[in-house]
Simulated assay, not measured.
Amino acid sequence: MRLTVMAVGRLKAGPERILVERYLERSAPLARTLGFGTVDVVELPESRAKRAAERKAEEAAAIVARCDNGIVLAFDETGASMPSPVFAERCASWRDKGVDSINFVIGGADGLDARVHARADGLMAFGAATLPHQLVRILVAEQIYRAMTILTGHPYHRV
């Protein structure tokens, strides 16, 4: 099963990129033992349109075009909070159902367009606060790693 973190915008060299890479590198050996692939990161360009609605629409077109027939889990402030064990179990359930891929989608500075919401199989939020997409990418990478540790019984996740 392919796992892809699909994000609008680029992470520049620095602590944010280092943290994302660290969590994804840690998750790779666990993911392989669980029947997941390594996690790919796809960075989509930010729209240069003048209005937010136009930017969101352009970015949505790029996101939807890159999502195959797999699962789309979009991270958005309007989404539901999901405890880590539930997140892990949901990923395992999709794997067990034979889903080819999970796309973890992170929007740009203006958020996600309704087209992405409509395509998404789920919307998830890291609380009610609006967070910068760079931090969301770190949190998504960490949750993927945490899910792998939960599913393997690794002691990283403590209840």
Rank of each mutant, 00 (worst) to 15 (best):
V8G: 00
L11K: 08
L11T: 08
K12D: 09
G14A: 02
P15M: 07
E16Y: 15
E16S: 15
E16R: 13
E16G: 15
V20C: 05
Y23P: 04
Y23M: 06
E25V: 13
S27I: 12
L30Q: 01
R32H: 11
T33N: 07
L34G: 00
G35N: 09
G35V: 07
F36T: 00
T38K: 12
V39L: 05
D40R: 11
D40C: 05
V41M: 01
V42I: 15
V42T: 14
V42G: 12
E46A: 10
S47N: 00
R48Q: 11
A52M: 12
A53M: 14
A53E: 15
A53S: 14
R55Y: 09
R55S: 08
R55K: 15
K56E: 15
E59C: 09
E59Y: 07
V64G: 09
A65I: 09
R66S: 06
C67I: 14
D68G: 14
I71A: 08
V72H: 03
V72D: 02
L73H: 02
A74L: 14
F75N: 02
F75W: 00
D76Y: 06
T78E: 13
T78P: 09
G79Q: 10
G79T: 09
M82I: 08
E89H: 08
E89Q: 15
E89K: 14
D96S: 13
K97N: 14
G98H: 04
N103W: 13
A109E: 10
D110W: 09
G111S: 04
L112Y: 06
A114N: 11
A114C: 09
R115L: 13
R115W: 03
A118C: 11
R119Q: 13
G122E: 10
